[in-house]
Design a protein around this nucleic acid. Structure first.
Lengths: 99, 99
DNA sequence: TACCTATTTAGCTAGGTCGCTAAGTGATGC
DNA sequence: GCATCACTTAGCGACCTAGCTAAATAGGTA
């Protein structure tokens, strides 16, 4: 494995890692139905707002989400809808798993 | 979020987490070209065999790989080729990222 | 100005992950 | 049996992550 190849895999891994958390998957699912502000997401998630805010910043810095401040609120939305296709394969894995 | 929904996301997260490492992405890429034994993979990766073996067991227990022992060697192969589609979207993310 | 609301950042602890070396397992050969 | 080869498991230290509370920031209102 060359250094350049390895660097490429590290960048990919960072993006995938951003998706590798149940709360962040929930957020992505929620935003697939339209933009939401932090408060709206927090209301639907069993965690405090600072925790949700941090999850959002992980997804944003990975390039999965983008944010827009309007007045007091910050709205988040999916930047790359294709991440959703992604889940179909994961579901296939789930159902095919013996255990 | 209901308890059942949350459990579903946790299962998904566990599978995605298995892919969220540069070495494991490399392994998946390598196995997309055919089965390999642990030694062959170790030769192509900058890590010791026990480390590679552990990465393989993470992918196997997530259902991404399956293994088969033949003589002294253990061969691994992709169990769900669709994980590869997955990477196209990740690449789109990479190239679209400002930084 | 002061105050309130929405969100982020800082600082902490608990728990998880990654790599290593050393030891264990299991099949093959002498 | 004993040695060897391919691999896995155990145990350790260094590092990272996820949640919390408390404090900081920034916009809106009076």
């Amino acid at each position: 494995m060359t250094a350049a190849t390895q660097a490429g895999y590290k960048t990919q891994a960072r993006i995938i890692k951003a998706l590798a958390h149940s709360t962040r998957l929930f957020i992505v699912g929620e935003l697939s139905r339209g933009e939401r502000c932090v408060r709206e997401l927090t209301d639907r998630i069993d965690a405090k707002m600072p925790t949700v805010s941090r999850h959002l910043s992980v997804l944003r810095s990975a390039g999965v989400l983008e944010d827009e401040k309007r007045g007091l609120q910050v709205f988040y939305r999916l930047r790359v809808p294709c991440v959703l296709n992604f889940f179909k394969c994961i579901e296939a894995l789930q159902t095919n798993n013996g255990k």
